[in-house]
Structure formats: structure tokens, C-alpha cells
């Protein structure tokens, strides 16, 4: 794509177009091994990701499994119109976005902070031990996590609530009240995923040259200064990349988790796109409808990713592409 542009551009003052084509060819020949290495991956993405992409058309049809893609009628933007004109659309959009923002603000930085804390630990044994402990919850399914929160927080003999009652003389219905819903969701997410999230940052930190710390110490730099000038820059590009990629699924809320936590009393803040589509599909497989919702979510993700990547590049960062 880029080379096409450069061939046709041929602006005055630059080298002649022919010369550019020559360099292009020379570059390709120079990198022939690199292209060869790319080949299996490109073939993989074409076959398994781009060939099935025709499935996106489902959002514009009334798809039924027995009529298939060729036999189902085209309906244009019907499903999108229906989605946007749902009476609950406003509520769903608000809930989904608020939860997504909470996730970015409260959940996303947690693994980074924890990685930095771990990085300050000089005893390798202790560090490894803590790392091993904190990544365990990732393997516990949401059903079990929600079950444990129930045991801790329920108003009927919930352990923490009993404790609260002893201290303050009242109980809080953490699991029922709408105002606690988002706090609960984020807390559970942090509990389950914080340790897992540190893995990638610790890998990035593993590349930091220890001599830099040595040099900084000799110069009398405090630990905060070391953190600021050595550690953080080392993982900055990883943080940015992860942030941009996270924006790609900005509107994904984690269906199973939310679904388990929704109750009649917190539905007004808990219902999000993912759970709503599930409910829709319960009586009839709304293939096309859910596909349309998915497409909408992806489109939002695309805009956010492209926008944030552009911004990152503007500030001199590498970005995703």
C-alpha cells in the first residue's frame, strides 16, 4: 500500500519515480528471508481469519442455519436500526461504557503497579513465591469466584458482613444493591486477574539492564527516581501497546462474569450489551441480531484503536503498527 503511494506520488524535488521502484525491488530482495518467514503467518491469517470474514454479512441478513448464507434474505440495516431504537439502548450503552471506563481506570493500572512493587523485591525466592501465588486466581472460574464472594458478602451469615455487623452494627447488601454493582465487578476482576496481568510486565522488566540501577545508585538517585527514569521507561511501550489493544474490545464486558452477578435489583446498572444479546437469543437464536451488535462493538473498537494509535505515534511512540 505504502509503496504504491510512493510510486505514484513522484513529487518534484524527490528522486525520480523509477529510482524509487528500484529501491523497492532492492529492499524486497534484500529482505527475501524475512518475507519467507512471514509467509506461513500470512497464509494462516488469510485462511483462518480472512476467508471466514464473509460471515460478517450475517448482520445484514435474516440468517437461519438451514437456509445458510446463500439462501437467507438480505435485510440491509434492519438489525442495526432495531438495535439502536431499542428502548433500553441508552441504558445499555451507558452501563457498558461506564463499566469499560472503570475497567480502564481502576483495573488496567493494577497489574502495572503490582509489577513495579515486585520489581523492587531483591530476593528472587520471595519474588517467585509471591508471583506464583498471585497468578493462581486466573485459573479459578467465574462461577467459583462469584460463589466465594457470596460466602463472604451475603447478608445471611456472610463472613465479612458479620464482621461488619460486629464493628458498625449494620450490614451492607453488597451483592444486591445497584450502587455496589460496579465496585463488586471491578473488585472481582482485580482479584482474579491482577497477578496474571503482571506476567507480561515482568517479562518486559526482565530486559532491564541491572547496571543502570547500579549506576543510578552511585549517582545517588532515590528509588522513586530510579523507578521513574529506569523502570517505567522500560515498560512504557508495552503499557501503551496493551492499552491500545484493550481499547479494541472496549465494549466487551465479560459475559459470564456479569451474567452471574446480575440480580433483579441491580439490573438497571448491570445489564450490558453482552448480557442483553444473550437474553435476546434465549428464545430464538438471533444470529443476525447478535452479529449486528457484535459488528457495532467492533466498529467502536476499531475507531478507538486507530485513534489511540494515531495519538501514540504523534507523541513519538511506536504504537501497534
Amino acid at each position: 500500500m505504502k509503496q504504491n503511494v510512493s510510486i505514484s506520488a513522484g513529487l518534484p524535488g524527490t528522486k525520480a519515480p523509477r529510482g524509487k521502484a528500484d529501491t523497492l525491488l532492492r529492499d524486497i530482495i534484500r529482505d527475501k528471508w524475512l518475507y519467507l518467514m512471514l509467509l506461513p503467518g500470512i497464509i494462516y491469517f488469510i485462511i483462518f481469519k480472512y476467508v471466514p470474514m464473509y460471515g460478517v454479512s450475517m448482520a445484514f441478513m435474516d440468517y437461519k442455519p438451514y437456509t445458510g448464507f446463500l439462501g437467507s434474505p438480505w435485510v440491509g440495516f434492519k438489525h442495526f436500526e432495531r438495535f439502536f431504537s431499542e428502548p433500553q439502548f441508552g441504558m445499555l450503552f451507558r452501563n457498558t461504557v461506564i463499566l469499560a471506563v472503570y475497567n480502564l481506570v481502576f483495573f488496567f493500572p493494577m497489574p502495572i503497579i503490582l509489577s513495579l512493587m515486585l520489581n523492587e523485591v531483591r530476593r528472587a525466592k520471595f519474588k517467585n513465591f509471591v508471583q506464583t501465588l498471585i497468578y493462581i486466581p486466573h485459573f479459578v472460574s467465574w462461577v467459583v469466584v462469584v460463589g466465594i464472594f457470596y460466602i463472604l458478602l451475603t447478608t445471611e451469615n456472610g463472613i465479612l458482613n458479620e464482621l461488619l455487623y460486629q464493628i458498625t452494627g449494620r450490614k451492607i447488601a453488597f451483592l444486591l444493591e445497584a450502587e455496589w454493582f460496579r465496585t463488586m465487578i471491578i473488585t472481582q476482576s482485580i482479584w482474579k486477574e491482577i497477578g496474571w496481568g503482571t506476567v507480561i510486565f515482568l517479562a518486559a522488566l526482565a530486559g532491564v539492564d541491572l547496571q543502570q540501577y547500579e549506576a543510578a545508585r552511585i549517582d545517588g538517585a532515590s528509588r522513586w527516581r530510579q523507578l521513574w527514569h529506569i523502570t517505567l521507561p522500560a515498560i512504557r511501550s508495552t503499557i501503551i501497546i496493551l492499552f491500545i489493544l484493550r481499547l479494541g474490545n472496549f465494549l466487551d464486558s465479560g459475559f459470564e462474569h456479569i451474567f452471574l452477578m446480575i440480580t433483579p435489583t441491580n439490573r438497571e446498572v448491570g445489564e450490558v450489551f453482552d448480557t442483553y444479546v444473550y437474553t435476546k437469543g434465549m428464545t430464538q437464536g438471533q444470529y443476525s441480531y447478535s452479529s449486528a451488535v457484535g459488528l457495532f462493538k467492533s466498529a467502536v473498537g476499531l475507531v478507538l484503536v486507530l485513534g489511540s494509535n494515531w495519538l501514540a505515534k504523534k507523541f513519538g511512540e511506536e504504537g501497534v503498527y
Binding site: P264, T265, T279, T283, Q284
Partner: peptide, 19 residues
């Protein structure tokens, strides 16, 4: 109507019952 939004309608009433 049931086929299209039967579950949603059910949820409206079930939630109301609970409340």
C-alpha cells in the same frame, strides 16, 4: 412477539415481582 422478545418480557415481570 414471544419468539422475538419473550425472555425480555419475562424478565420485566420477574424483576418486578422480586422488587
Amino acid at each position: 412477539t414471544y419468539r422475538e422478545k419473550g425472555k425480555e418480557l419475562e424478565i420485566i415481570i420477574q424483576d418486578a415481582e422480586t422488587k
